[in-house]
Design a binder for these strands. Structure first.
Lengths: 225, 225
DNA sequence: TTTTTAATTAATTAATTGTTTAATTAATAA
DNA sequence: TTATTAATTAAACAATTAATTAATTAAAAA
């Protein structure tokens, strides 16, 4: 009765091995590593070690490093769509809904902005096209629709460029999370859940009415030298 | 007279070799490669080939791959400060100046947003701290100062959070360039010089007065379902 | 039970990386 | 001129990488 569990030599299929458990451990390790460091900077050995399995498991379950990465991407988009149910419907999204939902999502999923920007910006060719399509087919057109309705019904200014307006709104929503290190270290804006809620309300008001006080002149002529 | 130019074996110091020229060629190659691909994904051999010199030249002139990268970073910040002279002065920057100058700079230097975000976001530890300090010591505090003046003199709303307001402004300024592929492919917003100028004016107006028409209610109650 | 299949590990493979070295040639100083 | 220094190349080096393979063991099927 020597092989208590074949202690040192862990060869062969382990007793009670769980296919799905290993798979999920690898995906989890991939998320941890790929969201904070660049693709090439993360080695399979690191991922495997961080998942507590042998390096060859990545190729066994996902075919390749790239395969694991793509599986991770799919999972991330799934979790986005699950976290933003109101954005999965087919009607127009109001500015308020977008600001609140997206701020909350970004606050709760700090890995997302880094990841999204890296994918859309840097992985030119590889995943970029698919990313852009996936990204833009979710909420962008429906938010655009909402903005265009606002203009055509006269609620918004008639001189607004819908595309630029959408970009401005997305920018003020996403950028604070994107520049989190700068926001926290330089501006002392700590993006906890309270500040996240404050940010969405701040942005809604800024987007709709601007920063200028009621009754003040907004031409900027009254500004400080 | 066989050694016409020692055609194939290009050993030794070449006639009329220009120290500064090689240095600049390497920096140029570094800019081209490092701004579009991640640090680890760019090899010294690629850079050298793209500069038309031997791979060992990187170590000869810059000590290491990292040394070349840092030299490139320094040059980029120099070009930013030269391109934005009005931001190098010591007085407060108005929202208008910031929006116009920065939009123009981003339009003329499309590599900057990618590079900046990559540095501030992803190179954790290595250059991040230095980047944040350099970045924030240039215009951030003076723009902040301008916003705080606007609030304290009553021109801006009293309920404004200055930090969030600065982040919103930076976001609506930078994001369109950051999401350029998405802006162009999905929203059909082509960021040429005309659109860049339009963007800065659009943002100034939006920042100051919002999107809602004069006389309209800005609570959003009047929006489409 | 016996056979086959699934899961896991250690070892190997082939390619690529950043860096160093030695050889080589031009420019410069003595 | 001669000796020394600066610039360049090809080659070698050592480390690391993703991927494959063969061996091994448990689970499932026959």
């Amino acid at each position: 009765m020597k092989q208590v569990k074949s202690r040192t030599g862990n060869l062969g299929r382990p007793a009670g091995s769980d296919n799905e458990k290993v798979r999920e451990a690898l995906l989890q390790a991939a998320r941890e590593n790929f969201t904070s460091r660049e693709f090439k900077a993360v080695s399979l050995r690191e991922i495997a070690a961080s998942a507590g399995v042998n390096g060859a498991m990545v190729n066994y379950y996902f075919g390749s490093k790239q395969g694991l990465y793509m599986a991770m991407v799919d999972g991330m988009f799934d979790s986005l769509e699950k976290s933003l149910p109101e954005m999965s419907e087919s009607s127009a999204i109001t500015v308020e809904d977008f600001s609140r939902s997206y701020c909350q999502f970004l606050g709760e999923n700090p890995w997302w902005p880094n990841f999204m920007v890296r994918e859309v910006l840097f992985n030119e060719g590889d995943n970029q096209d698919a990313m852009i399509r996936k990204f833009s087919s979710s909420f962008a057109p429906r938010l655009m629709q909402s903005i265009q309705q606002g203009i055509s019904c006269g609620h918004y200014r008639q001189d607004l460029n819908p595309g630029l307006t959408l970009l401005s709104l997305m920018g003020m929503t996403i950028f604070p999370f994107l520049a989190r290190p700068m926001a926290e270290q330089v501006l002392k804006v700590n993006l906890d859940s309270n500040m996240t809620a404050a940010l969405s309300e701040h942005n809604i008001k800024l987007f709709l009415s601007g920063v200028v006080s009621d009754g003040e002149d907004a031409t900027g002529a009254g500004e400080q030298s």
